[in-house]
Design a protein around this nucleic acid. Sequence first.
DNA 1: GTAGAAGTTGACGCGACGTCAATGTCAAGC
DNA 2: GCTTGACATTGACGTCGCGTCAACTTCTAC
Lengths: 248, 248
Amino acid sequence: MSTEGLDIAALARLAGVTSRTLRHYDAIGLLSPAWTGRDGRRHYGDAELLRLQHILVLRELNVPLDTIASIVDTDDPALVASLMHEHYVALLERRDRLATLAETVERTITRIEKGLPMTADHMFEGFDHSRYEPEARERWGDDAVDGSNAAWAALGAAGQGAHLAEHEAIASALARLAAADADPASPEVQALVARHHAWVSLFWTPDRDAYLGLGAMYVEDPRFRATYDKHGDGTAELLREAIAVFTG
Amino acid sequence: MSTEGLDIAALARLAGVTSRTLRHYDAIGLLSPAWTGRDGRRHYGDAELLRLQHILVLRELNVPLDTIASIVDTDDPALVASLMHEHYVALLERRDRLATLAETVERTITRIEKGLPMTADHMFEGFDHSRYEPEARERWGDDAVDGSNAAWAALGAAGQGAHLAEHEAIASALARLAAADADPASPEVQALVARHHAWVSLFWTPDRDAYLGLGAMYVEDPRFRATYDKHGDGTAELLREAIAVFTG
DNA sequence: GTAGAAGTTGACGCGACGTCAATGTCAAGC
DNA sequence: GCTTGACATTGACGTCGCGTCAACTTCTAC
């Protein structure tokens, strides 16, 4: 009778977490099950699996869960891409720090095995880089050192609302023009594309191709398509065409 | 009047931690200040700086603080080397995991920028490796997956005490023989070396050269030399010579 | 019908500090 | 000498991401 869904234990095994973690994510509203049997048991679908993987990637980067929530909840791909990029950079830095640390530890081990005493200077080597880091950490708090996150946080709740509102405004204006079968090259539509580009640029400065790709994604990816088409059918497509004209 | 000592803020800046962290380490007995002014202010010397760096290296490896305490408190280099090696391996694994994760994130970003939708399979790629990992984590608890740590923990408090007592026994017996100017090649001394080797091997299986190096270090490194010579002068040297004969 | 395995919801525990409050002490300037 | 401001001290409670009971329900298998 189970219509191909994962129960909590199956998902836990698949993703490499404990069931307790999944219940916790449900409790804090980070990941709710697709449906719950009338016996109370949680069942998850493919979408939840995908979302969980997204969550786990971010968690691996030491992103706090509430920040993760705001990231995976945003349906703006530009913002997501920008945040992902920041985390990507943070991740590379962390990897490099671990690498130099590993070297230091390795040297320490061989010194021990060869019976050489450890000196202060060589034990600090891996840390030289981290000396100037703490101030930044104390100012912004660990991994919020990420640029985009900081920018987003700096907006404050009000600013964040305004940003999202601007997006809504653009989308609904576009939807009205789409309903009227407007020409993507028309000045009204192009004005909206300009606003859209400015809006995107707050966090991300896409080059021509990337912006084109973003337009394509608005149509191809159902998640993002829905974001625009909820204002009216054909909105995503109009935006894509308009972006194509805009990027010329 | 300050005889070249760091106050808490200076040490914090130097090491890249907060003063609260230092106070915490003092509270749990992990790192006490070199001296406290009669006004109650903490002052740290070079030795504390060194110890703090040692602590921070281990902390970077997600070693719990109480384990760190037992590591930095132990004056047995073989045990230290063994533990360090385990952490080194853990560190490399972590670095590699981060590397594959970075690749996955990078691919995800380019897919977004090119407007390709994200599919389940490619988002999981970085995680394939981690699929079989969770069971181990659930069994042993995250980074306690380290072999030596697990072995040490498995001994329990009593076992740990016995281990340390055995070391004391060996050292004091050696000291008595050293005082009597015993021959390193004599059967009494060699029997003690055998015990010492067995003792070391509980956590670490050194090859011939490593064990030789260990002997050398007992003499060369003042910290470890003191560990043996506190039972009587010449103990460390006798042990080194005896190891040389033993490894023959 | 009964056992056993696995799910559920509280609720508390923990590790490594952050953070706040109340207070004390120092160096500098008036 | 007195104030002022910066920084120190010791409690004590808060936080985050779960782990870990406890008490109970429910499904499956025999």
